[in-house]
Every structure is written in structure tokens, then in C-alpha cells.
């Protein structure tokens, strides 16, 4: 039923073979025609540039490249610096073969993370109680890296906690089904990139989400959570860059969150007046941040 509906709508399918068939039907080009024999293997193409091949072989490969646009293009792409970079797995495997001290194991890191989580949770409870019972206590400081000193009259600290995950409804389908529509690849990759975020590894999350945001320029969630990850990792400048990259419309579920975390990033980078403006905006909205924003902006 689902398949019939999809076919009727002519929606692209997740499976590359299916897309290949669609390409063939819509353009009249048969990908099988491309498959030809007689191209040198990619390894020879790459090595031919470095003067390590025996002379007769080098001459044949070079003359083929000169005449073959496909191989010329492929070689250009293969020589891209990103393609030649070793992966983490390769680096680890090479390291294992060498007589070197293994990278330092840090059991204390786990303990420190647990302790930090407990302290953050305790402080959050205190913060929530304080905010819900009245004005903010002057002693209250959220757990975050210290920002530059505030000018007189503008003293507030915006507490930063991990932003709740608000993903598009289709993301749940993307995990369960193989045919979730054109955005399925993005949603699957978003889910994977958010894994370190859920586990509190914010630096790693920031890197993965940034790369996803570059790969999918239309995405909204990836740049937002990249910004929040930077903020939680203590990089307020990067956070600000990513949180301002994709301004959201008011109806978007992440609109309030974006304003709140942008205000926090502004505050941490010393732009208190701008941060207070955003808090005032949030105060006028009826979202989850309203009460906190009103109290902070009055200070």
C-alpha cells in the first residue's frame, strides 16, 4: 500500500538501486552503459602522479589519463586532501602495531563526568526552585565557564543545560523503516550525530553536527544542536556563530530554544545588552523559557 502510494507520488526511494532505475527512466540514460572495461584501477591513477611506477606502466597509465576524461576527473577527486585523510580506525590500527605506550586511559574522566552531572543536576534543582519561588538569589551562578566581567547594572548569568531534543516527526519513521522519504538520509544521520550529544560528549557532537549541517545546508536541527553543543563544551564564540546561522521562524518548535541559547552565548561572550534584548523577546512569548527570561531580563 505504502509502496503503491510512493510510486504514485513519484517520490525518490532510499535505495540507490531504485534511484538508479528512476534516473534511467527519467533521463533515458542507462547507467549500465557507463560500465566499461579498460580503465586503470584507481590505485594506479593515483600512483602515476608520484613517479614510483616502473617506466612502461607509468607511460601507459599517463597516456590513458590524458585521453580519458572520466579518469582525469576521478584522479582530481581522489587527490582531494579530505579523501586522503586517515580515518580514526586506520590511525588506531597503525598505533596498535607500534611499540608505544597505549593512549592514557582515564577512569577518572568517567568519575568526573558523573560528579559533574550530579552537581549540575543539584544546581538545576536549586535554580528551578529559586526561579519558581521568587527573584533570583544574587549568589546563584549556573555551572558554566566564567565569561568576561559584566558592566555595572547588567549582572546576570543565563543557566545553560542541554537543550531538549525536538526532532521532526518523520525522524521516528526514519529509524524503523527503509522508505522514509527524501529526507530520510538526513534524519538517520542526524540521529547518529546526536548520539554523542545525548551521552554528554559535546565536543564530538559539535564536530559531527557541524559536518552534517554543511552537508545539508537546508537543515535546521543540525546547526542548532551544533551551537548548543559548542555552548555546553564552553566554546561560546563558536556557539554564537552556529546559533545565528539559521534564524528560525516563530512557528518553529525550536524558535524559543534558539533565542534562549543565543542569549546565553551572547552573555558568555560579553554582549550583555544584546543578550538582554533576546531575553525580553522571550519574556513576551508564552514558551517554557518565559518565566526565567522575564526574571533575568529585569535584573
Amino acid at each position: 500500500m505504502k509502496e503503491t502510494k510512493r510510486a504514485a507520488n513519484n517520490m525518490p526511494h532510499e535505495d540507490p538501486e531504485h534511484q538508479e532505475r528512476l534516473l534511467m527512466v527519467e533521463t533515458g540514460i542507462d547507467p549500465a552503459v557507463w560500465r566499461e572495461q579498460g580503465h586503470p584501477p584507481p590505485s594506479l591513477l593515483v600512483a602515476s602522479r608520484e613517479d614510483v611506477l616502473p617506466q612502461p606502466l607509468a607511460e601507459r597509465v599517463t597516456s590513458h589519463i590524458e585521453l580519458c576524461p572520466s579518469c582525469t576527473r576521478l584522479l582530481e577527486d581522489l587527490l582531494d586532501p579530505d579523501v586522503a585523510c586517515p580515518t580514526l580506525g586506520e590511525i588506531t590500527r597503525i598505533r596498535r602495531r607500534l611499540p608505544m605506550p597505549s593512549p592514557p586511559q582515564r577512569p577518572w574522566k568517567t568519575l568526573a563526568l558523573i560528579a559533574l552531572t550530579l552537581v549540575t543536576a543539584a544546581l538545576s534543582i536549586v535554580a528551578v526552585r529559586t526561579l519558581s519561588s521568587g527573584p533570583i538569589s544574587p549568589q546563584f551562578v549556573a555551572p558554566m565557564p566564567p565569561g568576561p566581567p559584566a558592566p555595572p547594572g547588567l549582572v546576570f548569568r543565563i543557566p545553560v543545560e542541554p537543550a531538549p531534543l525536538k526532532l521532526p516527526p518523520a525522524s521516528t519513521l526514519a529509524w524503523r523503516s527503509q522508505d522514509g522519504g527524501p529526507d530520510q538520509a538526513y534524519l538517520v544521520e542526524l540521529g547518529q550525530a546526536l548520539k554523542p550529544y545525548r551521552e554528554g560528549r559535546y565536543r564530538e557532537a559539535a564536530v559531527r553536527l557541524q559536518s552534517l549541517a554543511s552537508q545539508y545546508p537546508q537543515s535546521v536541527e543540525a546547526p542548532f544542536y551544533a551551537g548548543v553543543s559548542h555552548l555546553l563544551a564552553g566554546d561560546a564564540l563558536f556557539a554564537l556563530e552556529w546559533l545565528t546561522k539559521k534564524p528560525l521562524v516563530r512557528s518553529h518548535p525550536l524558535y524559543d530554544d534558539q533565542l534562549w541559547y543565543r542569549a546565553a552565548a551572547l552573555e558568555q561572550t560579553g554582549q550583555w545588552a544584546e543578550a538582554r534584548d533576546l531575553l525580553r523577546q522571550l519574556c513576551k512569548l508564552s514558551g517554557g523559557y518565559q518565566q526565567k527570561a522575564c526574571q533575568l531580563s529585569k535584573r
Partner: peptide, 18 residues
């Protein structure tokens, strides 16, 4: 394995992909 088994021929037919 490289010099005889793989004759690098017909480099002109694949331009459609390029």
C-alpha cells in the same frame, strides 16, 4: 598482474558520466 592483464583501452566512451 598490471601490465598485461589490464589493457587500458577505449578511453573515449565514458564522457557521458563525466
Amino acid at each position: 598482474t598490471l601490465s598485461e592483464a589490464a589493457p587500458f583501452l577505449r578511453p573515449d566512451g565514458s564522457s557521458s558520466l563525466v
